[in-house]
């Protein structure tokens, strides 16, 4: 497996001068970065790797490509959105690895799935023509293909405070009975444009339509994922470093003020 990238410490010095001794290694797995990482979703991986370093941990970023063995020792799993052609290229590999992912999810591994991967983590996607394409069923959601695209900036109310991002999807997603959403829509369309829910959360698995990408401008949510990953990897409490989030907080609060008043 040649996809490991150990991210060095050298460029963090301007941040906090935090300890150069790593507090521990965290394995971040980005699934299908070539096929399913459109609209800057790669930025989520970059944000987590950088924040792990700034907190004093050592991120090991692993890219999982179709056909390779899935790293079952992942501490955090990320996936993004893609074009139809990208989605078609990953379906077999996802089906092949669905059991590993279900076991990881049930075991509490944090995961963040955006847009196309969010849909594939659901029960099914039903095309405009009525064809039912099964998902891997980790999230109890069903998506209906739609002629109308839902596009635009979004503000959510979540347990991590206001979360901002940008949605661009034609699928309309309904939550199953008892399925918790990720947030409540303050501005934008969300899962389906009608019930004001956005995304879905089961255990530590998060699905959302928010590109933007979502993590850089919403550090409270990013750090919540990091905390889960650190506790899973090291079996000890997350010890945060000091991070200068002025730009992130300004970027977010300005969008909130613009869109949700």
């Amino acid at each position: 497996m040649s996809n490991h990238q150990s991210v060095s410490h050298q460029s963090v010095s301007h941040q906090t001068g935090g300890p150069l001794v790593s507090k521990g290694q965290i394995k971040v797995v980005h699934i299908y970065p070539r096929e399913m990482s459109i609209y800057g979703d790669l930025g989520n991986t970059r944000a987590l790797a950088s924040r792990l370093r700034w907190h004093g941990y050592e991120p090991l970023v692993h890219q999982h490509h179709p056909g390779n063995d899935f790293p079952a020792d992942a501490h955090l799993v990320l996936g993004g959105g893609g074009q139809d052609s990208g989605q078609a290229r990953v379906e077999n590999d996802l089906a092949r690895n669905s059991e590993v992912l279900r076991v990881l999810a049930a075991d509490g591994a944090p995961m963040l799935m955006i847009c196309g991967m969010y849909q594939l983590f659901g029960n099914a996607f039903i095309t405009i023509e009525g064809e039912r394409l099964p998902g891997i069923g980790i999230l109890d959601v069903t998506t209906q293909g739609n002629a109308r695209r839902m596009i635009g900036p979004v503000v959510l109310e979540t347990v991590y405070g206001d979360v901002v991002g940008y949605e661009n999807h034609s699928g309309s997603t309904e939550l199953g009975a008892g399925q918790r959403p990720f947030g409540r829509v303050r501005s934008g369309m969300g899962n389906n444009g009608t019930d004001r829910t956005e995304g879905a959360v089961t255990g530590n698995v998060f699905g959302s339509y928010l590109h933007g990408p979502v993590l850089p401008a919403n550090p409270a949510f990013a750090d919540a994922l990091i905390k889960l990953a650190v506790e899973r990897a090291l079996g000890e409490p997350f010890v945060p470093g000091q991070i200068d989030d002025v730009f992130a907080n300004q970027a977010r609060t300005r969008q909130v003020r613009r869109l949700a008043g």
Binding site: G40, L42, R46, I151, G152, P153, Y166, G212, P213
Partner: peptide, 9 residues
């Protein structure tokens, strides 16, 4: 373009 996500690409 209303979406600035592309800056991360």
């Amino acid at each position: 373009g209303r979406d600035v996500s592309w800056l991360y690409d």
